[in-house]
């Protein structure tokens, strides 16, 4: 719990806005206290006053994050029934289960802002809220599961670790739990690719092909370049975001290059080269046309992903209704 004045200014009562002048003075005071709390790196909690736009931004971001966990189960679940060893099958099942759990934490975090899981799922199903564009790519071989663990979870962690210090308390705390599990998944993905890379020629080729297909979409996970990112500046002021898209993308590339070397795999970018002066890797241009096409719904699996999600939800209606009817009869809370 934070201590700045923002928190004592919380809790405007519904009837309190009777005098417009007094009310607007009060809002200015609340705004100032909020700004001060954020500047002092204090956490904003659900009952604290917050600007409407801050609340809306958080709902959008946390919901999109939750949706990504749920949709993100699909490309990996695609391989559960075909996993090539019982050990890998167990690891993959556990991972997909964790993702459902992450979705649940994140919907709960979003609900502290005054929305509901039902409402958010409805927005996902009707296309009014998005999920990460990466999950619109298909998993064509077993090696894709490893590449997703290494690259996609790696990019997610690079994005999410700074969110553990995000100004909104429930989101930051959810991220601490999510990041622990994600880094475990990422290591497993790396280890799975390593086994393939050091395996037979066919396995090595499968691993390389997967990395070739997942590398660029992973770089796109950091979002548009800084000069085209509409929400970035405000989110950084509010300390929802701590680093720009391009900074995080650069950090990710710098981490991946040596990892690819130790995997014995190459990254599909002829322009990738160490820049001594910058102390970073330079890399080639990203195909932003593809990024925007996928984001607008024209990626390889957009329709398939959302159709499956809607179908699961619709085919489950009678089950949820049964649970509610039983609870009503027997006086217990519904799930």
């Amino acid at each position: 719990m934070a201590t700045a004045a923002a928190h004592t200014a919380a809790g405007t009562e519904p009837g309190e806005a009777a005098h417009p002048a007094a009310s607007s003075a009060r809002t200015a005071e609340q705004q100032a206290a909020f700004d001060e709390a954020v500047a002092a790196d204090e956490r904003i909690e659900p009952r604290d006053w917050m600007p409407d736009a801050y609340r809306a931004t958080l709902v959008r971001q946390i919901a999109q994050h939750a949706h990504s966990e749920i949709i993100g189960m699909q490309p990996e679940a695609n391989w559960i029934t075909r996993a090539p060893s019982l050990r890998r099958k167990a690891i993959l099942m556990a991972k997909v289960q964790d993702e459902a759990g992450h979705g649940l934490y994140l919907y709960s975090a979003a609900e502290t802002l005054g929305t509901s899981r039902e409402e958010l799922l409805d927005k996902l199903h009707s296309g009014r809220q998005k999920y990460s564009s990466i999950f619109n790519y298909p998993t064509l071989t077993w090696a894709d599961v490893g590449a997703i663990g290494w690259l996609v979870d790696g990019a997610a962690i690079t994005n999410q670790v700074p969110l553990c210090r995000c100004s909104y308390g429930p989101y930051a705390r959810a991220m601490v739990r999510v990041c622990k599990e994600e880094s475990f998944h990422q290591r497993q993905g790396y280890e799975s690719l390593l086994a393939l890379s050091r395996g037979t020629k066919a396995q090595h080729e499968m691993a390389q092909d997967a990395v070739n297909r997942w590398w660029w979409p992973s770089l796109m996970m950091f979002g548009p370049p800084d000069d085209e990112s509409s929400h970035s500046e405000q989110s950084m002021t509010w300390k929802i975001k701590r680093h720009s898209n391009d900074e995080l993308r650069q950090r990710f590339v710098d981490i991946c290059v040596p990892q690819a070397e130790s995997l014995g795999l190459t990254l599909p970018d002829p322009d990738l080269v160490w820049n001594e002066a910058r102390g970073h890797y330079d890399f080639g241009p990203i195909d932003w046309t593809e990024f925007w096409a996928v984001l607008k719904g024209n990626g390889p699996c957009n329709d398939q992903r959302i159709t499956q999600r809607r179908r699961a939800h619709e085919e489950g209606v009678w089950v949820r209704e049964a649970a509610a009817a039983y609870a009503a009869k027997h006086g217990k809370a519904t799930a």
Binding site: I70, M73, Q74, A77, I80, T81, K89, A90, M93, A94, V96, Q97, A100, G101, G103, L104, Y107, Q308, R311, A312, H313, E315, G316, V317, V319, R320, A323, A335
Partner: peptide, 22 residues
């Protein structure tokens, strides 16, 4: 049970069915 992953009627059942499968 693994075939249910991504198809369950409610998120809690995604977790439960995967848990039993595991």
């Amino acid at each position: 049970l693994g075939e249910w992953a991504g198809h369950a009627p409610v998120l809690e059942e995604e977790v439960a069915l995967a848990n039993i499968a595991l």
